[in-house]
């Protein structure tokens, strides 16, 4: 049947258009979804954002008292600092470990060991964030109390370690792909010039793979910024300007997660939580934009 129709040449073009428009729809839908999410979040917060919220205070005040009876204050400075500090700490741990592991897996492993490592790393990436939060709440909490003699272990350090453990698999797998994509001829050429293994890595492979490595780091950072459950459980969830790794903090994401269920739909507090959503959107957008610009800059130079 089909063959006959193809021979006459009538059915095929229709199928072609059908498939093409379906694929086109898939492509466009991703754009629609992003704009849709942004539109929804923006719509929920817009009323208060343009009518009543002091944006300067919102960004710079550390006073987050959304449920106060007579003096509601919506300052997210402590939350912004919380998000950034815990992400920075996580990256400080995850980037050297992640890139180091990627270099090890891609350059020093035997093929058999490499397969094992990749499976384990993928397994690590599949652990739900609430499990990491649970580990932070129990194991890491005790550990930090014991090691640092701290009154409580639910701190920025705890959250940072959890986020690092969650970002490392992403960084490793993407960075490993980037390193594997460097042609073997580069390695051979550099070795033929008498370079040691380490010289090959830092003089040839890292420069050649820098775009991919940067993408790996940024995706890891994006995961950290957006992560909610683990930091909610592991950082103490207390509004506080962080003063060191052992201070407890609260992040933007955790605030939304913890409070959105408790607010009356449509009131100021509800809208402020959505404005925090807009803020998170903006932050990730800026991070992505910077990443794009940096990569473009690298390409041009």
């Amino acid at each position: 049947m089909n063959n006959q129709k193809n021979k006459t040449g009538k059915k095929a073009p229709f199928l072609e258009t059908l498939i093409e428009s379906f694929i086109r729809l898939c492509g466009i839908s991703s754009i629609i979804f992003v704009f849709g999410i942004f539109f929804f979040v923006f719509k929920e917060g817009a009323g208060f954002l343009f009518g009543g919220l002091d944006i300067w205070e919102f960004l710079t005040s550390e006073e987050w008292y959304p449920t106060s009876l007579n003096n509601k204050r919506y300052g997210t400075f402590a939350l912004i600092l919380g998000t950034f500090s815990v992400t920075a700490l996580a990256m400080l741990i995850a980037v050297p470990f992640g890139l180091g592991a990627a270099i090890f897996v891609s350059e020093f492993c035997s093929p058999k060991l490499r397969e094992t490592f990749k499976i384990v790393i993928e397994l690590l990436a599949a652990i739900p964030s609430v499990v990491w939060g649970f580990i932070g709440l129990t194991v890491m909490n005790q550990l930090i109390i014991a090691v640092f003699n701290a009154p409580i272990g639910l701190t920025m350090l705890n959250g940072g370690i959890m986020l690092a453990l969650m970002s490392v698999p992403i960084i490793v797998s993407i960075a490993e792909d980037a390193l594997k994509a460097v042609p073997d001829s580069y390695r051979e050429a550099a070795e033929a010039l008498g370079a040691t293994r380490w010289q090959v890595i830092y003089r040839v492979l890292l420069p050649a793979a820098k775009n991919g490595l940067l993408a790996a780091v940024l995706l890891g950072a994006a995961r950290s910024i957006g992560e909610t459950m683990a930091v909610l459980m592991a950082t103490g969830h207390s509004v506080n300007i962080p003063s060191g790794p052992l201070s407890w903090i609260r992040t933007l994401t955790a605030t939304i997660a913890a409070e959105l269920g408790e607010v009356a739909q449509g009131d100021e507090h509800y809208q402020v939580l959505f404005i925090i959503g807009i803020l998170l959107f903006t932050i990730t957008f800026v991070v992505n934009l910077i990443a794009d610009l940096v990569i473009k800059g690298i390409r041009q130079s």
């Binding site: 580069y186 550099a190 370079a195 003089r203």
Partner: peptide, 27 residues
């Protein structure tokens, strides 16, 4: 380093022209 090797397909390392040639002396 006692042996110079030129492979059949040219492999410019992803470095500047100067750094390509200065690679071996630097290592």
């Amino acid at each position: 380093r006692r042996i110079g090797m030129v492979l059949p397909l040219p492999v410019g390392l992803p470095l500047s022209i100067y750094d390509n040639v200065a690679f071996a002396p630097r290592t």
